[in-house]
């Protein structure tokens, strides 16, 4: 074994520069994984796509107008993002703990928030690839047409829906870690019930004002409602709130969830170090 050649001190970034480096470093496995693991890509594209087809055929069986087919397709896209939040964001820190990565994140000088943001960026890219695949395939299969009435507003709504959604995912990651092995169940609990309450496959307005208001705490609800209003021409008014108002609410949700993520992460580390939960591994 040869002698060590580099005994010189190594420069290490701190502050914002460290945050930036750590964030992209954590995003990297996900960005690269999109190319390397076709299995995941297929699973997260095919499952929502099949679900979407099922809902489209239900609409066809009931003789629904063509725009409802489009609603179902949008629901499929939203499902890809939501599944990504549940299984690749919320549960990720728990899995990282199980695999032994979490303790290495913690003992590194990188802020945990940078690690979570990296996960979110990587997760978003993963989900976007799947979401847009679903959008294109399903739109072609079922001949869905789109008419964008206000592109900048639509893009802003999309951006803040995603920012709010991934902020929520980051917050959930800490909560899941605190919940330990119950996390698995939590993700399951938040699938179909969220498909229902967020109006993924139908206009959320159909649930009534009270339920739709509560469901608006989830960025997907407002985002889907806003985007549907901006890209489909419908005979009836399908919107729960005006898209402009929904945008403002989405900005608010983004701020709330990102702050909550930061707070819960700090709390988690504090409680975890006190109670030894960051190092225990249970099956």
């Amino acid at each position: 074994m040869s002698a060590m050649r580099s005994a010189e001190r190594v420069h290490k970034a701190v502050g914002a520069s460290l945050f930036w480096r750590a964030m992209w470093a954590r995003a990297y496995p996900r960005l690269i994984g999109t190319q390397r693991e076709m299995g995941w890509l297929l699973s997260e594209t095919i499952l929502p796509l099949l679900g979407t087809c099922g809902f489209v055929f239900v609409y066809k069986a009931t003789g629904a107008p063509q725009e409802f087919i489009g609603f179902a397709v949008m629901g499929g896209v939203a499902t890809a993002f939501w599944l990504n939040i549940l299984w690749s964001m919320a549960s990720q820190l728990y899995w990282d703990k199980d695999g032994g990565n979490l303790e290495l994140y913690i003992i590194s000088p990188a802020p945990l928030m940078s690690i979570l943001l990296g996960m979110a960026i990587g997760g978003f890219v993963m989900a976007a690839v799947r979401g847009f695949s679903i959008l294109i395939i399903a739109s072609l299969l079922f001949q869905v047409g789109y008419q964008v009435s206000n592109l900048p507003l639509m893009l802003l709504i999309f951006f803040f829906t995603m920012a709010g959604l991934y902020g929520l995912g980051m917050m959930m990651a800490s909560v899941y870690l605190a919940a330990g092995r119950e996390a698995w169940h939590l993700s399951n609990a938040l699938q179909e019930p969220i498909y229902l309450t967020s109006g993924m496959y139908f206009p959320v307005k159909a649930l009534g004002a009270a339920v739709a208001t509560i469901a608006s705490a989830l960025p997907l609800t407002l985002g889907l409602d806003g985007i549907r209003q901006l890209i489909f021409t419908t005979q009836t008014d399908i919107g729960f709130l005006a898209p402009e108002i929904e945008l403002l609410l989405l900005i608010g949700l983004t701020v709330i969830f990102l702050s909550a993520a930061r707070y819960s992460l700090r709390k988690l580390e504090e409680i975890g170090r006190r109670e030894g939960r960051l190092i225990e591994r249970r099956k």
């Binding site: 190594v10 420069h11 290490k12 970034a13 701190v14 520069s17 460290l18 480096r21 750590a22 992209w24 470093a25 954590r26 990297y28 496995p29 690269i32 290495l104 994140y105 590194s108 000088p109 990188a110 690690i115």
Partner: peptide, 14 residues
């Protein structure tokens, strides 16, 4: 090397 690079960046290495 990718894994190692990732951890190196967590410590702020160029």
């Amino acid at each position: 090397e990718e894994n190692l690079w990732m951890f190196a960046r967590f410590y702020g290495l160029d």
